[in-house]
Design a protein around this nucleic acid. Structure first.
Lengths: 247, 247
DNA sequence: GAGACCGTTCCGCAATGCGGAACAGGATTT
DNA sequence: AAATCCTGTTCCGCATTGCGGAACGGTCTC
């Protein structure tokens, strides 16, 4: 049994979210006595959660709720929006799918589907990776302005595995290719035994908002016959997510 | 005396708005017993207002609050989002700061900081001004599509003060300059004795959502040595607000 | 002037929320 | 391996708090 007053308070808030209402009207809709509604509204008003449009008149949602909601990290709604796309990718491609953004000049993993394969793999959600060492980083770097790309390539690059590509010229070539193809593969450059394909989720300005990727164990992923098709699947999913985010 | 449970529930929500916290930590910060906090969190969780990041772990703000806030008309959240930026501008530049949008082909002032200077100035919140006569209008007009700019310049322009610039060719030149600099100054063209600098808050499509401005009395504002710097400060604040709004 | 309807306020009552204590589980330390 | 610490969760006796019916003041309509 929850706290009745809190339950009722949120009932009032959700009802007011549909549009401003007076005490009597609100009481009718939520089927509570006017005095109860008035008292709860007074309490919500003290918290800034509701406000009267004019003295003695209808109530509406107040800045108090907006301030609380506004403090929520933007990435949280991105995760919610991307989640169905990740599940679809994981289902159709048969490997783990993930979502990441650039944060502090690195890849930050926001979300992953659960690993359902026989090989139990580590979940990188909440972790960071250098841009150049993962396909997500490569595809997002590829869509940053040239000066930002150069600034990144000019700073010391981390050798994550023996296969991590550190040569700036080869990396530049790789960025060009990623931009051209729309996706990129990474082979054991960040973690040994892990390969991944990624595509960028672009904003209307062409800058990368996020990246979607699918990764699997290097010993069986990818089968060369499917590498390009998986790349295209990532591009398609990323484009669908981008369209949704900018609608 | 408000409803204690509602008061406490919102205290928890505001505290969680600062970042996810566990029950014990939260109880310490709000100085309530753990069982009280746990019960209120359970109630808020039932409403979707909070959620546990992981089972048995920290709590964070939930979609229930975001959904309620999301139902609020956009202008209301724009004012809330812009407010801290206005206060910061007013504080750092030492003059009144304001927020406006284009409404019905005119500037509509949504909000202003309070005038703290020795010269008491009028508050234009809730009022309109012709686009060409104020720097806010100029910077937003500058970022509208060319056909909309031409349509505006083709219609009769109001002479608000003897200094109001009405020449279409000079106004076109001014729009080009505003677009190039990112900000614009207006000298007594709307109200005698008032100068203002403004920068546009642009959406991801490059179209103006709003404008931030700072204005002061013409006899002392701006000091020529600081005009460019204040312009840049407006640009920086507008860009930060834009980033926040489109996250 | 009477009636209708709104938001607001009051107050007796008992249901609800409170908070101390205890519990279960996981992590850390010895 | 055992003890300790700390977390989130649950329980339950108690009394404070919230409830809701009734009344009030103000505004609008007829």
């Amino acid at each position: 049994m929850a706290v009745q007053s809190v339950e009722r308070a949120f009932l009032l808030l959700r009802t007011l979210a549909q549009g401003p209402l007076g005490v009597t009207d609100l009481a009718d809709r939520v089927e509570l006595p006017k005095s109860t509604v008035a008292r709860l509204l007074a309490a919500l008003e003290s918290e800034g959660a509701v406000e009267q449009v004019e003295a003695g008149g209808p109530y509406r949602i107040g800045d108090g709720v907006i301030d609380i909601a506004g403090a929520v990290p933007a990435g949280r709604s991105l995760i919610a929006a991307a989640r169905p796309h990740l599940l679809e990718l994981a289902e159709s491609l048969g490997e783990v799918a993930g979502l990441s953004i650039i944060e502090n000049g690195q890849i930050y993993y926001l979300d992953h589907t659960e690993s359902s394969s026989d090989v139990q793999m580590r979940d990188w959600t909440g972790e960071y990776a250098p841009l150049h060492s993962v396909s997500s980083g490569v595809v997002m770097l590829a869509h940053l302005p040239a000066d930002e790309q150069e600034a990144y390539l000019a700073h010391p690059l981390e050798q994550c595995t023996p296969w991590t590509n550190l040569d700036p010229d080869m990396l530049r070539e790789r960025l060009i290719q990623a931009r051209s193809l729309g996706y990129a593969w990474g082979y054991e450059e960040f973690a040994e035994g892990i390969n991944a394909v990624a595509a960028p989720v672009l904003g209307e300005d062409g800058l990368p908002l996020a990246a979607l990727h699918v990764h699997g164990p290097a010993y069986r992923y990818p089968d060369p016959d499917i590498a390009h098709d998986h790349g295209l699947a990532l591009v398609a999913a990323a484009n669908r997510l981008a369209a949704q985010l900018t609608a």
